[in-house]
Design a protein around this nucleic acid. Structure first.
Lengths: 119, 119
DNA sequence: CTGGATCCTCATAGATACTG
DNA sequence: CAGTATCTATGAGGATCCAG
């Protein structure tokens, strides 16, 4: 077996990058609870800058994971929501959360032991 | 709901970071097939530098995902293998791969459509 | 309100050379 | 063989200001 990190045509790599992206995951998690406006996302996702939020939303929209709905009103109103594909991805994220919660203790214990042995 | 990217005590965040790490995932995938030596990993994981490989291996070892076995012989021989916890994580990665393969077409189609509409 | 554009900096990946 | 030490630069991400 030979593995390549540069095989950008590898489906897994692309999904992994998306999953590994801090803001993308947080946005998906927030939208899993329902539709939200730009400002709502900005306020409730702690520490995100407008730039990163927009960038993240554009990426998710491009991948068909969320929809962006512009309401032609003044002041502007833009709603974001998960697509079916996005909800499917959210299922994956839930699986990760579940694994994380049930194994984090083992990881923590391993770290403590490792640090003790190393120090 | 309020989500925080800085909640480093959040189990999901830590697992997400690990999953999102290019080299970590590749190493886990390679070790899933069996024990490997340092040089084997270096040769077969395309594009990885010694520095990054060592850094990745140390991180995985610290988290209890792999074991590092030094054989006191000349020349040196070091074997790396997945722990039970590591194999468990690999199961998660397999799940991701499966999802990626079955949905990548949708994502690609969405991207093409998005780019066409944007351009 | 919802961003776009710009500048800046700081962390970190990667290349390279070297060693027990 | 299995790393470590050192250097560089690149690019992600933050801050800020502005516009439709």
């Amino acid at each position: 077996m030979r593995v390549s990190a540069y095989a950008s045509n590898c489906p897994s790599r692309q999904i992994l990058d998306r999953i590994g992206d801090t803001w993308s995951v947080l946005v998906v998690v927030m939208l899993a609870e329902g539709t939200h406006r730009y400002t709502e996302l900005a306020k409730r996702i702690e520490g995100v800058s407008p730039k990163m939020l927009t960038q993240t939303l554009r990426g998710l929209e491009r991948d068909g994971l969320i929809t962006r709905t512009v309401h032609p009103v003044v002041p502007p109103r833009v709603d974001y929501a998960l697509t079916e594909l996005g909800r499917s991805l959210y299922g994956l994220v839930e699986g990760l959360e579940k694994w994380a919660e049930s194994h984090i203790d083992d990881v923590q214990a391993a770290r403590t032991a490792y640090d003790a042995a190393t120090a």
